[in-house]
Design a protein around this nucleic acid. Structure first.
Lengths: 216, 216
DNA sequence: GTCAACAATCGTGTATACAAGAATCGCGTT
DNA sequence: AACGCGATTCTTGTATACACGATTGTTGAC
C-alpha cells in the first residue's frame, strides 16, 4: 500500500470503478469500503472527495456517493474531446519529433502490427494504449499529455468494448500506419486529421458503442 | 455558506488561489485555514484533497500542501489545449446553432463591443468571459462545456493580465466579429481555426505573458 | 386498503484525540 | 566558527466519538 492510505484508496477505488467492479449508479458506502480495506472512514472519505473532484463519482450531500453513469451520449462527447486532444498531440508530435520519440512510436507501432496479425484483441488492446501514449509523449506538452492520459484512462472500459467489434483490429492498425507516416513526414495537419477520425466515433461505430454499452 | 463545509471551503480556497490571494508556491497550513474559516481540520483536509485532485495544489505526503506554480511554459501549454477545446466548441456551435444560442452569442458579443469602444478593460474582461461561455454552451456538448469552463477558470488570472496589453481590446473584439460571422454562417472549420488562433498565444503574445507573469 | 405522519435507525458531516514522520533548534565536536 | 547529530516541537495522517439530516418502517386514520 502507498505511504498514505488516502492516496492508496483513491487509486484502489478508481481502478475498481474503471474495471467495472463497481457498476455505474452503484452506491459507495463509506463504512463498507472502510472495513473492506481495513481502514477507518477518514481516509475513505478523502479518497471519495478526490474521485468526486475528478468526476468519477458524485457525492450528494448527506446522501452518499454513487458511481457516475455517463450514458452513451456523454461517452460520445468524451470521445469527441479525446479525439481533439489526440489530434493536437499528433500535430505537435509531427512538429517536434525527436529520435527517442520516433523510436518509441516505431516500437509500439510494430507491436500493434504483431498483435493485429495474430488477431489477439487483448494484446492489441494493450499495445494500442502504449502506441497512443507514445504519441502523447512525443507532443512534448506535459499538460496535454496529462489531460490525454486522464481521459484515456476514463474511456478505457469503452475502448475495450469497441475493439471487440468485427474487423476493428485491422482497420485500427491500418489507420495507425497512416498516422505514423504523417507524423514521421512532419505533416502536423494530416496527423491531426487522421488522429481525430481514428479516435472519434462516428456513424456506425457509435451504434456499436451504444450496443456494447447496453449489453452490460 | 454552502450546506456542507467541505464543499464551501473548496470553493473558498479555490477562489483565493485563483484571485492570487494565495500565491503560487505558498504553503497551506491546515490549522491556519481551519481557524481562519472557523471549522476543524477535517473539512479543510477534504477541501485540500479535492483541490489536489483538480491540480490546483500539490499535497506532498507528510509535508503539507502548496499552491502549484505552473510557470510560463506550462501556462502556454494550458492555453494551447484551451485553444483546441474552444476550437472544437466553435465548430460544434457552427453546426448546431439554434435560436437561443444565437441570441446569447449576439447579446454577449454586443456587450463586448460596448466595453471595447469604451476602452473599459475590466468590463471587457467580464463580457469576454460571457461571450466565450456562450460559445461553449452553443456547442451542445456538456462534457466539452465542463472541460472548457474548468480550464477557463484556471487560466482566468493569466487572461486578465493579457488584456492589459496595448491594443489587445480592439484586436480581440475584431477577432470576435470574425468568429461570430463564421459560426452564424455555419462554417465550422473556419470557426475552429479562428478560435484556435484567438485563444492561443503565439509569437509576441507569449513574451507579453511571460513579462506580465514575471511582473508579479 | 391506501395514504400520511411519526418514530426509529442508519449513514453522513464535523470535531477531537492520538500517533507518527518531518522540520527545527540547540548542543557538542572538530 | 562551522558542521553534524540528537532531542524537541510542530504538522500531518488516522481513528473514534458525537451530532444531525435522510431514509425507512410502522402505526393510525380515513
Amino acid at each position: 500500500m502507498s505511504e498514505n492510505a488516502g492516496r492508496w484508496l483513491r487509486d484502489e477505488i478508481e481502478n475498481s470503478i474503471l474495471s467495472n467492479e463497481f457498476s455505474p449508479g452503484e452506491r459507495l458506502d463509506e463504512m463498507v469500503l472502510a472495513t473492506r480495506f481495513g481502514v477507518s472512514r477518514t481516509p475513505v472519505r478523502e479518497a471519495l472527495m478526490q474521485l468526486d473532484a475528478i468526476g468519477l463519482i458524485e457525492i450528494r450531500p448527506r446522501r452518499g456517493a454513487v458511481v457516475i453513469d455517463p450514458g452513451p451520449h456523454r461517452v460520445y462527447e468524451m470521445f469527441e474531446v479525446m479525439a481533439e486532444l489526440e489530434g493536437l498531440a499528433g500535430s505537435l508530435a509531427a512538429r517536434r519529433l525527436d529520435e527517442a520519440s520516433r523510436e518509441a512510436i516505431t516500437a509500439t507501432h510494430s507491436r500493434c502490427e504483431q498483435s493485429a496479425a495474430a488477431g489477439d484483441s487483448d494484446a492489441y488492446y494493450y499495445d494500442n494504449e502504449e502506441f497512443h501514449k507514445a504519441i502523447y509523449a512525443a507532443g512534448r506538452s506535459e499538460f496535454l499529455e496529462e489531460q490525454c492520459l486522464q481521459l484515456h484512462r476514463r474511456l478505457r472500459p469503452y475502448r475495450r468494448l469497441q475493439l471487440r467489434v468485427r474487423n476493428r483490429l485491422s482497420t485500427s492498425f491500418s489507420e495507425h500506419c497512416a498516422i505514423v507516416d504523417a507524423i514521421f513526414a512532419g505533416d502536423g495537419d494530416e496527423a491531426r486529421r487522421l488522429l481525430r477520425t481514428h479516435v472519434g466515433i462516428q456513424g456506425e461505430r457509435f451504434s456499436d458503442l451504444v450496443a456494447s454499452m447496453a449489453a452490460r
